[in-house]
């Protein structure tokens, strides 16, 4: 490994940061935005979540979603572009609820999340069950801004944040893995920040 003489951290890292920041990440107080194109306009009253694949096909409206039991989580999030943000607070419905509602089959081993802009991302089913993935509709007690994926986005905080699809409008349950948008374009298929699985050669 190359040493860069005279290079020093600009901002002091506390001992907690050392355990809390995955390798190669730095802490930010902002909430940067990354997306592949313009922000699609999705209104609550037109929003629908389609659920299909290895399950009973169903569809949820905003009203339906509001009637499901809600949970609040406070989690650190990690973006593949290197920033991490501590203690982000989200309110929404656990994906487990949808899996139960739609009677998802045991043969389903991957979830493909679909977004209003045509984006997709693939996640193993074990990474979205047992309260690991939230269908979020509030950030920090407010509606999620369009830029950050509102009205409804997925939040899967233990994986790099591109897995947390913005403008969520579809959940597809499949038996075989299918790489999503970034996964087909050079990013890692799984995306564990602690193993620094950023790109497809990691």
């Amino acid at each position: 490994m190359l040493i860069n003489k005279g290079f020093k951290p600009k901002r002091r890292q506390s001992d907690t940061d050392r355990d809390r920041l995955p390798p190669g990440q730095y802490l930010t107080d902002d909430f940067p935005v990354l997306s592949l194109g313009p922000t699609p306009e999705v209104s609550k009253d037109k929003w629908k979540l389609r659920v299909w694949g290895l399950c009973e096909e169903t569809s949820l409206s905003w009203e339906n979603l509001m009637k499901l039991p809600a949970s609040n989580i406070t989690k650190d999030i990690h973006c593949v572009t290197k920033w991490s943000k501590y203690d982000t607070n989200w309110k929404g419905v656990w994906l487990d609820e949808i899996i139960r509602l739609a009677n998802v089959d045991d043969t389903a081993s991957f979830l493909i999340a679909h977004s209003a802009d045509g984006y997709t991302t693939n996640i193993p089913i074990d990474d979205v069950t047992d309260k690991k993935a939230l269908i979020a509709y509030e950030y920090d007690g407010e509606d999620i801004e369009a830029g950050h994926g509102g009205p409804v986005r997925l939040v899967v905080p233990h994986l790099y944040f591109w897995k947390s699809a913005k403008w969520l409008d579809g959940l597809e349950f499949v038996a075989e893995d299918q790489p999503g948008f970034w996964e087909e374009r050079g990013y890692h298929n799984y995306g564990d920040p602690w193993l620094e699985q950023r790109y497809d050669t990691d």
């Binding site: 490994m1 190359l2 040493i3 860069n4 003489k5 290079f7 020093k8 951290p9 890292q13 390798p23 190669g24 730095y26 572009t81 290197k82």
Partner: peptide
């Protein structure tokens, strides 16, 4: 781009 300090601290940016 990745920089490494003498005491092992690293920073990466795109």
């Amino acid at each position: 781009i990745r920089l490494t300090s003498e005491n092992g601290y690293q920073a990466q940016r795109s």
